[in-house]
Design a protein around this nucleic acid. Structure first.
Lengths: 356, 356
DNA sequence: GTGAAAGCGCTAACAA
DNA sequence: TTGTTAGCGCTTTCAC
């Protein structure tokens, strides 16, 4: 039990009978110290159980060797995997990360980033709810704070001044929907998280429109499902009665995809026999589902790693690199395939608002 | 674009024509400042876009308002959810968290905790690979560092000097296996992550033994599956040929459970028709599986929140509270039920080491 | 009600 | 090769 304050370089200096400058030099492995002094310092440090105080160092250096990370949710598989990549890369470079969640809330984004900046993090890695028109990013630009966006794809207009890492959401969504069309689906509808809360969802919707339009098919506005929704049965029933020719659904993220697959099944529909479902993200558990999710896999961990690499360059003085797009991949999975020639028998339209 | 150094209280002082002491008092809302001075300071701060430098504050206060968090993996749903709880609770208390992963590696645990301590975090929230005999924890105890374990259940002998939050792994596993026995299963085997890397797995195994022994059934050492394994077919084939009477499997974590369910199916077995599978953790995606996982649900988010609360008390000077056990719950799910009267036809025993 | 000054732990410029 | 000293930004005595 030691409640005593921990040793400082001063303590080492007096014990080793040298000056604090010499102690500092030895501890930082600077040249120009005699072997005798060096050994004495090292010995004293060991005896005292010396642990350098990073606080002092930081203040002096006016940097913290720390990266600020700000993500919407930490428990969400996509962000959790990305965070894993960030942490790993940061640790590899001797950097710490201080992590905050924003719950997709602008006010929280504002508060959290301010807190991070007060701690003088060397730079920021962040996903904002909406990068398209975001005062916070403008502020960071104006202040010259080094940052890298993850998952957000900034508008082309801002690409010159902003760095980001992610996938090409629009192109990837287009490819996925093109695949559905190639399988023979004609009426495909989209379900998405709320647009106001996710520019990714918007970009993926744009990709869906691209593909449908190009194929000469009608598209409709996506059904927007709040992030908190964990029962999509009513939404699905509504959709399927209104558009009974629907043979495929495209979901803007895999959390939603898994929920939809479960709920379609709960409504008595077979996936993919009666209806095909495709997703986006490629979360790990998707591959464990039965059937495995048909989805767009995105390199979440690598996105995190790349963000750290990019941010390090920015901190070192490099100019913003614009949007770095990492490769995605279509996962055939088993929740989507050619549409059945006979349309499914639709379930009764009863409310499931009160699940039994 | 402002590469200029940011304003300090000194800048405010000269602009507001007061002393830095007054500035500090105003910014910290201390009493005893005239309205005039107060307004002048606030105005100057606003004009200069002042942002308090936490680094200076920390050095002076000899505390960082930061909690260190050290977990085996950040992408793992259980830890990710826990981290979400930690972050949320910390943010609510105005604390930051600096987060590191250890990859279940002792050397990394050592290095990471040292790094955290150098940053003078006010306390530590951590999951170690093995809390039973851990030099790092002994060191933290000796140094009087406030910390709270999450998920680890310290030995009773250490309960007086250590704080931890988790579930009663042994009791919960016992209940789950008792449930399987109540359904009529007689030969139940366990699959687990590697013991050396997880005291949780060991405790859950102990619970399995408790239940089997109490029911007068034989139990066997669990099949240990490395964390990196994502194909359990060979392990399962081996087990099922050696013990063809097996009707139920108990897995020490849900990641493993989901993999096992998928692989049994790949081997041509029906779950739960041919064989029942039960898991442990209650990860969110488990409920989206088809059928939903039969598992022990654990309050991962609350564990994180409780850890922050406990740690705050420890930092404030409270004595260690020993092990806090949060309630778990048996989730009936659909991957386990009464055993089928007719034993399943076993698949051929061919190697799947090279999956097609 | 206010200000001057010390000092938290550290690094680095400068002098010796 | 070594030591002295200033100072990073802040809070907090202590004196006025």
């Amino acid at each position: 039990m030691s409640t005593q304050r921990s040793a400082t370089i001063k303590d080492i200096a007096s014990r080793a009978e040298v000056s604090i400058a010499t102690v500092s030099r030895v501890l930082n492995a600077k040249a120009g110290v005699s072997d005798a002094a060096s050994e004495a310092v090292l010995a004293a440090a060991r005896q005292l159980g010396f642990r350098p105080n990073q606080l002092g160092r930081n203040l002096r250096a006016a940097r913290s060797a720390t990266l600020g990370v700000m993500l919407p949710r930490l428990g969400h598989p996509v962000f959790a995997e990305c965070l894993q990549g960030i942490e790993q890369a940061a640790r590899g470079r001797g950097l710490s990360i201080v992590v905050s969640a924003t719950d997709y809330d602008r006010a929280t984004e504002e508060a959290v980033s301010e807190q991070l900046l007060r701690q003088r993090v060397d730079g920021l890695i962040l996903t904002v709810a909406d990068a398209a028109d975001n005062p916070l990013l403008d502020k960071l630009d104006a202040e010259g704070v080094p940052y890298v966006l993850v998952f957000n794809q900034p508008l082309a207009a801002k690409a010159a001044v902003r760095s980001s890492v992610g996938v090409d959401n629009r192109a990837a969504a287009r490819e996925m929907v093109q695949q559905l069309l190639a399988w023979g689906h004609r009426e495909i509808h989209m379900l998405a998280g709320q647009f106001g809360q996710s520019d990714r969802a918007r970009q993926r919707f744009a990709g869906y429109c691209d593909a449908m339009q190009q194929a000469g098919r009608d598209w409709r506005a996506p059904l927007q499902v709040p992030f908190t929704t964990d029962d999509t049965r009513d939404v699905l029933l509504h959709l399927l009665h209104e558009r009974p020719q629907t043979t495929a659904l495209f979901c803007s993220n895999d959390q939603l995809t898994m929920t939809v697959v479960r709920d379609l099944r709960a409504l008595g529909l077979f996936v993919p026999g009666d209806i095909s479902v495709a997703g986006f993200d490629g979360v790990q558990t998707g591959a464990l589902m039965h059937p495995p999710l048909t989805t767009v896999s995105t390199p979440t961990v690598q996105i995190g790693r790349a963000a750290v690499a990019l941010l390090s360059e920015r901190i070192a003085g490099a100019a913003p690199q614009g949007a770095v797009l990492l490769p995605h991949a279509l996962v055939p999975g088993g929740t989507a395939r050619e549409p059945s020639p006979i349309p499914p028998r639709l379930p009764e339209r009863t409310s499931h608002a009160d699940p039994s």
